[in-house]
Design a protein around this nucleic acid. Sequence first.
RNA 1: GCCGCCUUAGCUCAGUUGGUUAGAGCGCUAGAUUGUGGAUCUAGAGGUCUCCCGUUCAAUUCGGGAAGGCGGUACCA
Length: 500
Amino acid sequence: MAKDKKVAGPEARLPKGFRDIRAAELSATRAMLDTIRRVYETYGFEELETPAIEYTDALGKFLPDQDRPNEGVFSFTDDDEQWLSLRYDLTAPLARFVAENYQSLPKPFRRYATGTVYRNEKPGPGRFRQFTQFDADTVGTESLAADAEICMLAADTLEALGIARGDYVIKVNNRKLLDGLLESVGVNLSDHVARLAVLRSLDKLDKFSREDVALLLGPGRKDESGDFTKGAGLGEKQIAVLLDFVMQPKLSRSERDAIVRTAGFEPVDAFGDGLAELDQIGELVEKAGYGADRIRIDFSVVRGLEYYTGPVFEAELTFEVKDEQGNKVRFGSVGGGGRYDGLVERFLGQKVPATGFSIGVSRLQAALGVLKGSAAADVAPQGPVVVLIMDKGELPRYQKMAQMLRSAGIRAEMYLGTSGMKAQMKYADRRGAPCVVIQGSDERAKGEVQIKDLIEGAKAAAAIADNKEWKESRPAQVSVKEEDLVATVREIIARHGGAD
RNA sequence: GCCGCCUUAGCUCAGUUGGUUAGAGCGCUAGAUUGUGGAUCUAGAGGUCUCCCGUUCAAUUCGGGAAGGCGGUACCA
């Protein structure tokens, strides 16, 4: 039998890294999106929707020196043999939109957008190949006030989602500063490979110890499976300065310079510029009332490597939770962003500075689920009232009852299967129905209906062990006149707080 | 991509030092109860023991390879 099934057709299976999402989780997601939207709108951002597919060159993701798109993006060709790709974030499409509509947009242009994005990468726990982001961006100003505001928006949003102050932090750094620091200690910035190797190593400070990161910056490191990661090849003195600097964000301005100088290096201009920008953002948010418990300078934040040009932000959850096995789970980054002054310029040829922030909704939702206890996070929504079929010859009557309930704004359905009453009760139970409507020939003759409160019934049942008694007592079941059907059902739903 | 571990029922897992009919719990279906979801009891369905190749009289068990999963690491625009 099973054999026949197998050869009869394709195997029903979900592509790796993708998920089916059911009603309970979807309603939690929708609530989150509504909350985020509300916060973004109070900041004055306007909504924009762009398609899930863009021309690959608009995303800027062709492999260098090949006419094939970057691995990592899902791509295909259309009938005209043009490369198309699924968007991998919401920022590149925004840049395309702004460039295409530049004349008609108010500047600065401030928009928010939400949608699913796609990445053709190895999935991991909490990491999928399709996930939802929620972005806000300000395009067309180089004012650092825009960056400061983005950080405040991020903090406000996380708190609106129920994350307590202290359970998260918005970390801020500056790419100019990092590049300036590297240049100051003698890293050749035009050597792209070397620069990325160093930045990536520094980015791992939240994951690895100082010693391990030092190995990555220097000769390389062996991971616990025995695999070897090639290092950036820096000298001990360079490594010491980088780590000393990056790991101590609270230093004063002169102390910062001193770390670089005492090792015999001369700070370059970009280093000072980056520091000045950071200080300015720090002052802006602080004067707006956002202290270091919410927004904090952290020199180890690197973020994505391709297009950021100035300040970068990262939203991190700081609480620790244990999973079922008792292992510590850290959620880390649930959002990030930064300034990308070159993205629109790619299309327009003129400089259009921009800054923005993106929340990883799917990841944040997973984290919130653990924070609040998964039971509370995914509450199954209440199902519809189910009208049972006691007499197949009376379908129109039952359909009419369902219709009356619907007209009164109550979600209701007539049982559409063909099984007996027991199976129908089971069905109603599984759907999460608050109550069922029963009318057999006896009730019909009297112009009545039986209404059984399933939620109350389940409670009553707990006290009754004997099946016969349970059946005969018919807990939480009332008989009412047909014309009182709607009122009685409404009362039951209201009692269970399901009047939404 | 690289490294390590894993794969037996829908789920969680026993088990077979290579030998007739491979088990449990949970779940599912049905009956006890011809009009009542729970609980209890009874019965039933459900497995090419992931796949392919090899060793062997004999492989779910041993060897090799593949696929899938988990974890680490790399990448993550």
